[in-house]
């Protein structure tokens, strides 16, 4: 009969260290998850509480869950109009930004342009991104007034497009640079002109990049507040964030309506992120290995 082997003290210590490390990692991740998720939970829980419940003792769960704050925000306060404006402004911003972004990135990635021009364009785009919005809000206000587009969605669309353009340019540049030139050249050899090869060859291949850029531009535009506040005056053009700030009144903070607004505001980009997540991952990692 073979004598049982005892675990060596050294092996036991190693397993203990691994277990300890695992516990620390799980605890750390759990804490991070709690810190990230609890505010979201609290937002949702508060959005399901009625006003009288808010004036009672604080509870972790809504005692009598109600959708009344959502109704109050969207219907009573008329925020559905602001939500609609936000969708229109952000969608138009995406279209304009991508169209202009493609017009700029196509030549610098697909045509033989002088390197100095390419670097100059990219640096110019980057400089726009470094511009603090608050530094230009007053001149923009004056321009918008002069053009008589104050309190019109087109003012926001123009400015959001301008501010998101650098991001789109840099992202699209990475994508377009990854698509082999030979594919387009083959189409040109087969008789296609430049527009056809762009439309039929390049665009389908660049679709994931465009989706990723569109999602991120939409999300950035969705949460913009400063210009929306300054350049709009009525619900005809106000966006959702402008409405939300109005829920802090002089004598009352309408917590449940504010939480409901937060959930609504969060939902749209969240859904978009979920739908386009595979493109986003691709878009954010494309071109990180090889620089052309």
């Amino acid at each position: 009969m073979q004598a049982p082997t005892l675990p060596s003290p050294r092996g036991g210590g190693k397993r203990l260290a691994i277990a300890l490390r695992l516990i620390l990692i799980v605890a750390g991740l759990g804490m991070a998850a709690f810190l990230y998720a609890f505010p979201l939970y609290w937002l949702i829980a508060t959005s399901l509480k009625s006003k009288p419940e808010l004036y009672q003792s604080i509870t972790l769960f809504p005692r009598h869950p109600t959708l009344e704050p959502y109704f109050s925000v969207l219907v009573d306060r008329g925020f559905w109009v602001l939500l609609r404006n936000s969708v229109i402004v952000c969608a138009a911003t995406v279209l304009v930004t991508l169209a202009v972004g493609l017009v700029i990135t196509y030549p610098i990635t697909r045509l033989s342009v002088p390197p100095r021009l390419r670097v100059g364009v990219l640096n110019w785009a980057l400089s726009l991104r470094f511009l603090p919005p608050v530094a230009v809000v007053v001149p923009y206000f004056a321009i918008v007034r002069t053009l008589q587009i104050y309190n019109q969605p087109i003012a926001l669309i123009g400015i959001y497009s301008l501010f998101n353009l650098p991001f789109a340019i840099w992202m699209l540049k990475g994508f377009l640079a990854e698509i082999p030139l030979e594919l387009e050249e083959a189409a040109l050899v087969d008789g296609a002109n430049r527009w056809t090869s762009f439309r039929r060859v390049l665009l389908p291949l660049a679709a994931p990049g465009l989706m990723a850029a569109a999602t991120i531009v939409f999300t950035f535009a969705w949460s913009e507040f400063l210009f929306a506040l300054i350049l709009t005056a009525t619900p005809q053009s106000q966006t959702f964030p402008v409405g939300v700030q109005g829920l802090v009144t002089q004598f009352e903070i309408i917590w449940n309506d504010m939480a409901a607004s937060g959930v609504i505001a969060m939902s749209v980009p969240l859904v978009l992120m979920v739908v386009a997540r595979k493109y986003l991952v691709a878009g954010l990692t494309f071109g990180v290995i090889r620089e052309k």
């Binding site: 104050y150 309190n151 300054i230 005056a233 700030q245 109005g246």
Partner: peptide, 19 residues
């Protein structure tokens, strides 16, 4: 909100806007 209304009115008046 209170503070925003004041600044909004000031900018509107400076622009002589008819909103």
């Amino acid at each position: 909100p209170y503070d925003s209304l004041f600044s909004k009115l000031v900018t509107t008046f400076q622009a002589n806007d008819s909103s």
